[in-house]
Design a protein around this nucleic acid. Structure first.
Lengths: 203, 203, 203, 203
DNA sequence: TATGAATGAGCCTTCATTCAT
DNA sequence: CATGAATGAAGGCTCATTCAT
């Protein structure tokens, strides 16, 4: 009988509505900032009544929590396969790709990396040692290798890796925060930044 | 007649009241965050009535705008007196002092620089040209001079100034976000960052 | 044809659903109070959907009205079979049983007897004459008989019956209102009250 | 100067507004019950906007608390001066006066004594021991004295005092709940009740 | 018959802003 | 100049009720 399919259809609809609400919320967050994100605004933009949102989410906090959680996965768990290039080339490539990657989820980046809640910082902080932030450890490894092979000037790899990361973080942060930086400008900034850093590293 | 003197006196009084209101607002902002800043709270803390604030300011937005403007002075427009040092030394000194300065107002830094509201970005964005962010322009000038004098390798000063700024911004951002980075660690990170950048610039 | 039987079957089903809904409503009311009684909660506890309730009842008010009406019967129309005991024994027994009975439905008692809506008072008021409150009339009859037989001191039976009833009502009211009066304390209070009243009646 | 009087005038106005709000709240409570008492309804009935109520009261709970507190004083703290009459006369007088007193604030009596919220019961419950309800303790004292002097039959004073109180409470409860009991009828009921109880006490 | 998505009204509360005094 | 009473809009949230399916 067809009726046995009613439930999955419902379920799918519910998931779509949740996604719609989350998407709308994210859009508002992105365009107008955290403090402009209200249940009523979400509803209005969806052309629904505010009450309906509470069918799909327990409360506003649940929406915010999910938004944050989603950001987490996008930002912190993106992994580049290890490269077989020489350390300097690998480094340059890694720096570029890291930025590329981060810029694919600009809102998630902001949500996650600008959050100073302890529970979030546990995963995002990288100035101290050790850090759970994979990219920093990756950079440190490349630095070690590059110094060993004489491509990079001698340095403290742990500190220098963090300096490099801060530089990238700074650039990405501005790019995801400032609106309307044209694509070619973005590209130029990125290349300029990476070149500057690579020059700074070289032996 | 006395009346000829009344005006300047009144004018002075008005300026004092504006300063008092702004100071109180800033204090609340600093101690309790942006969302805790209400007209009522300002008035209460001044031991005045809420209405009076509208004698001296058109509305809350005007106060916020000025606060931001002031925050920018602290964050964005802290001007170091032009240095008589050669450009490379001046640059190094400027980069260090810029960070030192920014770290004096960590909350203001976060509030101002992480805000992506258009009204804020008007003052804080610096990836595009021109920018109201003085430090960037200053760096660009130092770059120009340094390149001319052959201390720095040839580069696009506008782009490179922004890359430098992003690097500093990234470091300061993490320092004001991550908790518990020890003072000596902070110092090491700062020195490492600036050295790396200076190496990247040199001819 | 089958259809001739369909109607009674359906009718019976409807009655069962109504009973189920009312029972669930009463349970919630009893356990969580009047303000916790919501259509959603009834439906959830029945594991049905909220909408279905409107198939069986016009609206929430109809459910509440029936709940009240049921409380009415429990409180006001509980009839003890006439006793063959002498009036004084019969009176003592009746007073005790009346309280016992009332205490079996504490919430209903509160709901009905504390209500001062005219529509409710029509059934519950007993200070005036005549009254629809059976127990009062019963007590008056017992009083009459007891006075005639010389067991009770002469008195105005109508007034005295009301005084007796008020005393019982007062005790029961406190017992259904105050929480945590232990069973043995309840018993002692009840016995003390009835003895006091019986002493007051005796010739 | 006249201006020195501005403050007291303001203060008086504030007190009047608070009284107006409380009065309106009480009226709604009395006429429509506790659950119909909303801030909006108070405001609407006063022909004010809801927000203004928060100028005069912290929140709804404060209003409710004051309403309760006022009821408390009226109902629970009315003290009769200790009498120099012999215990039996003093008892009779006390019982009568207690009812008289309670009937002076019929609404308060209902509000306070029919409330089964823990915070209210803390003050109103008297079936257990000890109780904060002064009248009950007063009655117990009179009972003790009367038994000692041989005017009252031996009894458990604590329990008997509660039985007496319940009887009075029952009568008053009905009088404040049932509408339109004529004054002479009230008087007759009261006298009948007290006589019955006094007969029940006597040695 | 039964579902559950959706609405609209209402709840408590906060706040920028206005205005008579 | 200064007050503070008052408003109206908005915020998060709940709920009785309706209706297409």
């Amino acid at each position: 009988m067809e009726t046995t399919q009613a439930k999955p259809i419902r379920e799918k609809y519910v998931q779509e509505m949740r996604a719609l609400i989350l998407g709308t919320a994210q859009k508002i967050y992105k365009e107008e900032g955290a403090q402009a994100l209200t249940i009523r605004k979400i509803a209005k933009q969806m052309e629904y009544s505010p009450g309906i949102i509470y069918h799909y989410f327990k409360n506003k906090e649940e929406i915010l929590a999910i938004l944050r959680e989603e950001g987490f996965h996008k930002i912190l768990h993106s992994t580049e396969p290890p490269s077989s290039l020489p350390p300097d080339r690998a480094m340059e490539s890694f720096l570029l790709k890291f930025c590329d990657n981060a810029l694919k989820n600009p809102d998630a980046f902001r949500e996650v990396m600008f959050d100073n809640a302890p529970s979030v910082l546990e995963y995002t902080s990288f100035l101290g040692e050790p850090t759970k932030y994979r990219a920093v450890n990756r950079i440190a490894n490349l630095l070690n290798a590059g110094v060993e092979q004489g491509q990079f000037a001698p340095c403290d790899p742990a500190l220098t890796a963090r300096a490099l990361m801060c530089s990238l973080f700074g650039l990405v942060s501005r790019l995801v925060t400032e609106k309307g930086v044209a694509a070619d400008r973005r590209f130029n900034l990125l290349v300029t930044q990476v070149k500057l850093l690579m020059r700074g590293l070289r032996a």
